[in-house]
């Protein structure tokens, strides 16, 4: 046997009395505020916070803001100019290379051979060799 629709409704209605545990909502509230503070601090530290502080400072600077603005603009342009990538320069020398042929120095062993007296009369006869 199935419960009818009315009985299902009555069963589910019992759950109306269910509540989170006692003290839950107070703890929940504390955590809620803690999370909001953490989020606010994260925003303050991030780019949004910097921008907010910058615009606030500009707002408070009065007429001097134009001078600051011009100075900042000039600094930005100068920084861009300095940081811009320049083409690397390759040095091309137009001076011609000087050269001359230097005769090689005669080999010492060849000089020794040339000094030798190789004439037949200076060589003696066969069998006349003295030991």
């Amino acid at each position: 046997m199935k419960p009818d629709a009315q009985q299902i409704g009555d069963l589910l209605a019992l759950k109306r009395h269910e509540r989170p545990p006692e003290g839950y909502m107070e703890d929940f509230l504390r955590e809620f505020h803690m999370r909001r503070r953490e989020e606010a601090m994260a925003v303050e530290r991030g780019p949004q916070g910097w921008w907010k502080r910058f615009t606030a400072w500009i707002g408070e600077a009065g007429a001097a803001k134009w001078a600051y603005g011009a100075g900042l603009g000039y600094a930005a342009i100068a920084a861009m100019f300095l940081m811009a990538e320049r083409p690397t320069q390759v040095e091309h020398s137009t001076e011609s290379v000087r050269w001359q042929v230097v005769p090689a120095a005669p080999d010492a062993s060849v000089e020794q051979l040339e000094e030798l007296d190789l004439r037949p009369e200076s060589q003696g006869a066969t069998g006349d060799q003295e030991f």
């Binding site: 199935k2 009818d4 009985q7 299902i8 069963l11």
Partner: peptide
């Protein structure tokens, strides 16, 4: 829900 609760109901 009627179908799922049938066994427990019986």
């Amino acid at each position: 829900l009627q179908t799922h609760l049938q066994e427990f109901w019986e």
